[in-house]
Amino acid sequence: MSASAERIARARATGNSFEVLSWFFMRLSGVILMFIVLFHLFYMHFVIGVDKINYALVVQRWENPLWRVFDLFLLFFALTHGLNGARYVIDDYVHGSGLNLLVKSIVYTLGFALLLMGTFIIFTFRITS
């Protein structure tokens, strides 16, 4: 039995609702990401095109606050979905509670730093008005 299956079995036995919420969150964020990530990739690669992406394009795009909101959703759901997935992977392969905690601490710290950096730039980049 994999570590994640064990975790779910333990969650059922003890009534731990965190893993149930985690399971539900992966489905919910997954469905949201299916729309916003695929739209983002389609838009940037096929409507705009990689060759046309530059600083000026970002300035122009982020003049519309709706794009900032869109990108904020993208950042938040992609990162939280990805980090929760990383948690499953760490639990599957990194055994020993000390090492497991160490690896998770590093990954969560990096993840949180990325969330702050992304949020910071979306909210502060060339706010002129």
């Binding site: 970002v58 950042l75 990162l79 950096m117 992304g118 910071f120 730039i121 980049f125």
Partner: peptide, 8 residues
Amino acid sequence: ILDIFLLG
């Protein structure tokens, strides 16, 4: 995220 942060 790192490359977009460099916009700053």
